[in-house]
Amino acid sequence: MQKDGIEFMREYLKNTWDGIYTVLVGMRITFKHLFTPAVTIQYPEVKVKLPDRVRNRLYVNIDDCIGCDQCARACPVSCIEIDTVKSIPGEDLGITSNGKKKALWVTRFDIDIAKCCYCQLCVFPCPTECIYMTDVYEFSEYERANLLYKFSALNQDEAAQKKVNYEKFQAEKEAQKAAAAAAAAKPKPETPAQPSAN
């Protein structure tokens, strides 16, 4: 009985001491942290450096685009839409930065970035490396229509003009062809033009 009492008292005092001591240990730790600089990165003012290969907003360098449509075909969500018009002889479209000659007017190059899934599959097929991911990731909009990015260098009138030019050229060509055909047909009027004759 006597021993139990002593044992109990020892445990009681030890509990008391442990209680005070452990609280002080904890307080020392929190006090240290009081002067530790915050780990918070205050986002709008401070930005974390992004990794090299991040995939964010798409950008098209339209000067290099040859209108090959490969990116649009690679896109799994069909968010790229491209319209092209053939150029007519005499129009100089220039060359791309890697020396390819441009032959098509890119009258429309729309990327609906709201649909984009950032897979980067459109980037790899591009022969001129003109479509690529940028490090811009803050492009929220109030209107969904604003997320439809138009990259074409031509405005609507110019695009229409190019189309008209091409159609005119085509019509002229047709007319020339017809005339040539007519001229070729003249010497032999008894045999009318047949598909198999060509």
Partner: peptide
């Protein structure tokens, strides 16, 4: 503020 500093945060600023 104290809670933020003790947890290495910034707190209202």
């Amino acid at each position: 503020k104290v809670s933020a500093w003790m947890q290495d945060r910034v707190g209202p600023n």
